[in-house]
């Protein structure tokens, strides 16, 4: 039987409905401030862990396009970054260096704490792109080719340095920077510095500790004094047991020090190996 709505007050008792609303409000009201506090704590911890990634700005969104933006927004940031990386490989194979550079920037912006993007991105720019520019004979002027090559080396170096900023304890990025100064820029002193920093990072391979000193041998004016200081510092850092170990090449270190002490005529009382 249907009757007009105005003749009755409710279909459910008022107390019944009020009770429901009150309970829900109470539960959410108690939880909401606790939620905010807890989330702030989690966010702070994650900042300390240096987790980040560029905020989803319009600029980033334009670069990604709609589909990938949804992917990032739904928490698939790393997968999206990997997808974009596929196009880096493609651009490298088609030798579209500007496109490749932009995509490397995008990947590193999406996932700055993935060392592999910085590592390989810098390699692509400072080696592949720069060598291609050097051998690009569509540009007849060799000086212009050199300038272009140097441009890509600088881009690569920027990538490595920003990578180090985001991943300061990653030995590979320090090593890559040293390699760049060593092989591409021939700046052996700076290379020595970066090799030294690389060897100080956790999990760094042992051989890196010698590379810093070796760089001084390659300095154009043969900076024997700096080399001696570096070899001596290395010798003093090693324990007696480590000096005996084959991987530390104690014999070689001793040979280098003896040779340099001779060459520099270090007074016997100040020598590491007076005999």
């Amino acid at each position: 039987m249907e009757i007009p709505a105005s003749t009755v007050s409710t279909c459910l008792p008022l107390a019944h409905r009020l009770r429901r609303a009150a309970l829900v409000a109470l539960l959410l009201g108690l939880w909401a401030p606790a939620k905010i506090v807890w989330e702030q704590r989690i966010a702070h911890e994650q900042d300390v862990l240096r987790y980040g990634g560029a905020p989803m700005t319009l600029h980033l969104r334009d670069q990604l396009g709609q589909g990938l933006t949804i992917g990032v927004l739904s928490g698939m940031r790393s997968v999206v970054a990997d997808f974009v990386w596929l196009s880096v490989t493609t651009s490298w194979m088609t030798e579209d260096w500007w496109q490749m550079g932009a995509e490397i920037n995008l990947c590193t912006a999406l996932q700055p704490r993935a060392p592999v993007f910085w590592d390989m991105g810098g390699w692509h720019l400072a080696w592949n792109a720069s060598i291609a520019a050097m051998e690009d004979h569509t540009q007849p002027n060799p000086l212009r080719r050199l300038k272009a090559s140097r441009f890509w080396i600088d881009r690569g170096r920027d990538i490595y340095l920003r990578g180090i900023e985001n991943n300061p304890t990653n030995w590979q990025l320090w090593r890559d920077t040293a390699l760049l100064y060593d092989q591409r820029l021939k700046d052996f002193r700076t290379a020595a510095y970066y090799y030294q920093k690389a060897s100080e990072q956790p999990n760094a391979p042992i051989y890196l500790e010698r590379f810093s000193a070796i760089m001084y041998n390659k300095v154009h004016a043969n900076d024997d004094l700096s080399a001696y200081v570096a070899w001596k510092a290395l010798w003093e850092r090693l324990t007696p047991e480590e000096r005996q170990m084959k991987q530390h090449e104690g014999d070689r270190i001793e040979k280098e020090i003896r040779g340099l002490e001779q060459k520099l005529s270090i007074p016997k009382e100040k020598r590491v190996f007076p005999n």
Binding site: L28, A32, K35, I36, G75, S78, R113, P115
Partner: peptide, 30 residues
């Protein structure tokens, strides 16, 4: 802020998979 959960905090998983150290204390917090 008051009602919607912070789903983005779970993307710390990307950090874990990239090989970066995320302590268990943080995981338990989450």
């Amino acid at each position: 802020s008051l009602l919607i959960p912070d789903m983005n905090s779970f993307t710390i998983v990307d950090e874990i998979l990239a090989g970066n150290k995320v302590p268990w204390s943080h995981a338990f917090n989450l």
